[in-house]
């Protein structure tokens, strides 16, 4: 293994890990505010990618511009979904039933995409798709860098929002202790809706980033949901920093393992990490003891 190949994989691993981190942060938000595991997250990711593809197909503009309407749209859909669907479930069986409910949403999205656009693989033709540049012998495609940039900006935005705004404070309070948050006057139902909207907005951004440099097809979301689920369990359910760190570590690991093992077997790394975590440290490496119960 040459040094430049290693560097190349490292860089690609970081770029991939950034996207994973953004998406896993969204999943963690849903889990935090509602104790809900959102299986449909990656289906919305693919939906956003299709919207970006369709947008650039119809208008000939850059797919990044589709963010202007997909992000607010997805935020709204998230709020509506939480208010109309998730909050109707019985509290006693909320966690299990929400998995099934969001799973059914994922199926509806996949089926609708397949019905409207067919099962063929789609790809956006970008004028700068072939552009790449070299850093220390590592070859980096511009689109991958743009995707990483989007993910990094969105994550930073999410961080600022959670840390320094009143809404962020209310969200964090709801995540930490819903009853106590209600006692100090936070409308936790509404806040949970906003949390869902924010989570779906990350899927919109991630999907657009994904559409830039990969081929998309309706059943692609199954390839994303497995690694994302592994990331949030390894990081500890409900911990955003844990999710981000686990995303980076696992993204890097996958990218490095691709050199000796090839792309297919490298994917099993996520699942091995998942099973190892459950055997050694079931609550995940950054979660609190509460995480084990969900």
């Amino acid at each position: 293994m040459t040094g430049s190949l290693l560097l190349q994989s490292l860089v690609l691993g970081v770029l991939l890990g950034g996207l994973y981190a953004l998406l896993a942060a969204g999943l963690t938000l849903y889990f935090g505010v509602m104790r809900v595991v959102m299986i449909a997250h990656s289906a919305f990711l693919i939906l956003a990618a299709y919207l970006a593809w369709y947008f650039s197909q119809q208008t000939g503009l850059d797919p990044l511009l589709s963010l202007v309407f997909t992000v607010p749209l997805f935020f709204g859909v998230g709020v509506v979904m939480q208010r109309l669907l998730i909050s109707r479930l019985r509290p006693a069986t909320l966690t299990m039933m929400s998995v099934l409910l969001t799973f059914s949403v994922a199926l509806v999205i996949e089926g609708t995409l397949g019905f409207l656009f067919g099962g063929t693989h789609r790809r956006i033709q970008l004028p700068y798709a072939g552009t790449s540049f070299e850093i220390f012998g590592a070859n980096i495609a511009l689109v991958k860098l743009i995707a990483f940039g989007l993910a990094a900006i969105a994550l930073a935005g999410l961080y600022v929002l959670l840390k320094f705004t009143p809404l962020g404070q209310a969200l964090r309070a709801t995540i930490q202790h819903p009853e106590a948050a209600q006692l100090v006057g936070i409308n936790t139902d509404r806040v949970a809706g906003y949390g869902f909207g924010l989570g779906l907005a990350t899927a919109a951004i991630g999907g657009t980033a994904l559409a830039l440099d990969s081929t998309i097809y309706p059943s692609l979301h199954w390839h994303w949901i497995g690694p994302l689920m592994a990331i949030i369990v390894v990081g500890g359910l409900g911990s955003i920093p844990g999710a981000a760190i686990a995303a980076m570590a696992l993204g890097l690991g996958q990218s490095l393992l691709q050199i000796p093992l090839g792309t297919t077997w490298a994917q099993t790394f996520f699942y091995l990490a998942l099973f190892a975590t459950l055997m050694l440290h079931p609550q995940g490496f950054f979660g609190d003891r509460l995480a084990q119960r969900f």
Binding site: M229, L237, M279, Q292
Partner: peptide, 19 residues
């Protein structure tokens, strides 16, 4: 491995196994 965790984590593991 999978029964050590409850609820959502259990479902995640069951999906991961199929994948």
């Amino acid at each position: 491995a999978s029964l050590r965790v409850r609820g959502a984590s259990f479902v995640i593991v069951s999906i991961a196994l199929v994948l």
